[in-house]
Simulated assay, not measured.
Amino acid sequence: MIEGSCLCGAVRFRVKRMSGIVECHCAMCRKAAGGHAGFFFVAMRNEVSWEGEGELTHHESSPGLVRSFCARCGTAMTGANLKEPDETIILAANALDGDVPARVIAQEFRASKATWFEGHDGAEHFDGPYPGWEKLRP
């Protein structure tokens, strides 16, 4: 079983199977995910079980497409699903818990890629928190 949850733990999902993960660079997905891209996968709607589903809030981000977020902490839990649901559901890979049997298989809307994300491979990296937070100033 593959599991996911929001930051505060109020909403959880379990899925039996998942597709590969798609990385989306469009502005809406970046904002919904709170990062350089949104990461999403597809599951069969009848193979998803929810805990705390009543804590989800919904936003129609485009005509006919609805995203879901935890109303308590704001974690994106679904991608842009059809307002009139079909048999699949797009779930947010950022909400996945633990290791999963899937990896990123595609990137979309690369022309919208955040410019600040380019060339960051040379940045310092740490296994724990960044030790320079208290010294950061504009």
Score class of each variant (00 low, 15 high):
F117I: 05
S49Q: 15
E55N: 04
V100L: 09
R30E: 03
M18K: 01
D86Y: 06
K113R: 15
R137E: 14
A43Y: 11
F69Q: 05
N94V: 05
L7W: 03
A106D: 13
P85A: 00
D99P: 10
W116P: 00
W133T: 14
T75P: 05
G54A: 15
H125L: 10
D97K: 14
R30K: 08
R30P: 04
P101M: 01
A106P: 09
C6R: 09
G132F: 14
G35H: 08
R103Q: 10
A71Y: 02
T115E: 12
D127H: 08
S5M: 11
P131A: 02
R72L: 05
P85K: 01
D121F: 06
H120P: 02
A37M: 14
D97Y: 07
A114D: 13
G54P: 04
P85W: 00
E118G: 06
G9D: 07
A76V: 10
T75R: 04
K83N: 04
P129F: 09
L91C: 07
C29E: 10
F40H: 15
L136C: 12
L136G: 07
V15F: 04
D97T: 15
E134I: 07
G98F: 10
T75G: 08
V42Y: 04
A33Q: 11
Y130V: 06
T75N: 06
K135T: 15
A93G: 02
L7R: 03
R110L: 12
A32L: 02
H36W: 07
Q107F: 05
F69T: 04
L96T: 13
A114P: 10
I105M: 08
L65P: 05
R110C: 13
A32D: 02
L7H: 04
R45Q: 07
C26Y: 06
S49F: 10
M18Y: 00
I90H: 00
S5G: 13
A43W: 12
A10L: 08
A92G: 01
K31L: 07
L7M: 06
C8V: 10
C29V: 08
G34T: 06
I89K: 07
V22I: 08
R110H: 07
D99S: 14
F41K: 11
S62Y: 03
E118D: 15
A92E: 00
D127P: 02
V100G: 07
T57Q: 01
K16Y: 10
G119V: 07
G35D: 10
R45Y: 04
E134Q: 13
H36K: 02
D99L: 09
H120R: 12
K16T: 14
L82T: 12
G4F: 04
M18A: 03
E60I: 00
M1Q: 14
L56Y: 05
V48W: 05
V100M: 10
A102H: 08
C8E: 09
C24T: 01
H125M: 11
A106L: 10
R14Y: 04
G35F: 05
A92S: 09
E51P: 04
R45E: 05
A111T: 14
G132N: 13
V66W: 02
G34F: 01
R17M: 11
M44P: 03
L136K: 14
G38R: 05
T88S: 07
F41R: 12
G74D: 01
F13N: 09
G9H: 12
E84Q: 05
H120E: 13
C8F: 11
S62K: 03
W133I: 12
R72T: 10
M44H: 14
M1N: 12
G119T: 06
E108Q: 11
G64R: 00
G20R: 03
N81Q: 11
G74W: 03
R17S: 15
A92Y: 00
